[in-house]
């Protein structure tokens, strides 16, 4: 066992767990932060998508020892706190477009969407269908078309 500290949703956390445990299980099983979901455990389905220092990543595929004390991890639970509003514009767009069905993949979808829009905006352009085609998050309910609509709506407010 070893101690690991990092910033989680704006607060410093410290856990006592083996170095190799993937961050997803540190979040879910040790810290009880259950927004990021398990769908594959091998960085394929993207249901656990969260942010590290503002960029999208998949904690199922990162060992806790590779997270530095200064790294800022943001899960869906902390997303709204990154903006000066009760909800992040992407969450708001999700509600307006009634995107979710079962909801299991949706935290990951929203976190992926926010990172994608930030990336595209940083490149000085607007989101395109090609960008949306590149989103790898699986939605087994098949609400892909509403996801695309919501991202376009959310992007206009980011």
């Amino acid at each position: 066992m070893a101690q690991h500290s990092f910033m989680l949703n704006g607060q410093k956390v410290t856990v006592d767990v083996e170095d190799s445990v993937r961050l997803l299980w540190v979040l879910r099983d040790v810290l009880g932060v259950t927004g990021p979901k398990y769908g594959c455990g091998i960085n394929v389905c993207k249901a656990c998508t969260s942010h590290i220092n503002g960029k999208a990543f998949n904690p199922c595929s990162v060992q806790v020892k590779d997270i530095a004390p200064t790294d800022e991890i943001t899960t869906i639970e902390g997303l709204a706190d990154t903006v000066d509003a009760p909800l992040h514009p992407m969450q708001q767009a999700w509600i307006e477009r009634d995107v979710a069905q079962c909801g299991y993949c949706q935290p990951g979808q929203i976190m992926a969407a926010v990172a994608l829009v930030n990336k595209v905006h940083a490149e000085g352009r607007e989101i395109t269908d090609a960008d949306l085609d590149g989103i790898r998050n699986v939605c087994r309910c098949g609400t892909y078309n509403r996801i695309r609509d919501a991202i376009k709506v959310g992007a206009t407010r980011m």
Binding site: W25, R28, D29, G32, T34, G35, P36, K37, Y38, T75, I76, E77, A80, L87, Q91, W94, I95, D98, A100, G103, Y104, Q106, P107, I110
Partner: peptide
């Protein structure tokens, strides 16, 4: 009518089976 659980879903508060905390029910 939008889903009644939409807010819980987009904030990560909707709980599924593995999100439940039952004493001593380890992975």
């Amino acid at each position: 009518q939008n889903r009644v659980d939409a807010m819980d879903i987009v904030t990560g508060r909707k709980h599924f089976t593995t999100d439940l905390s039952v004493p001593d029910a380890l992975p």
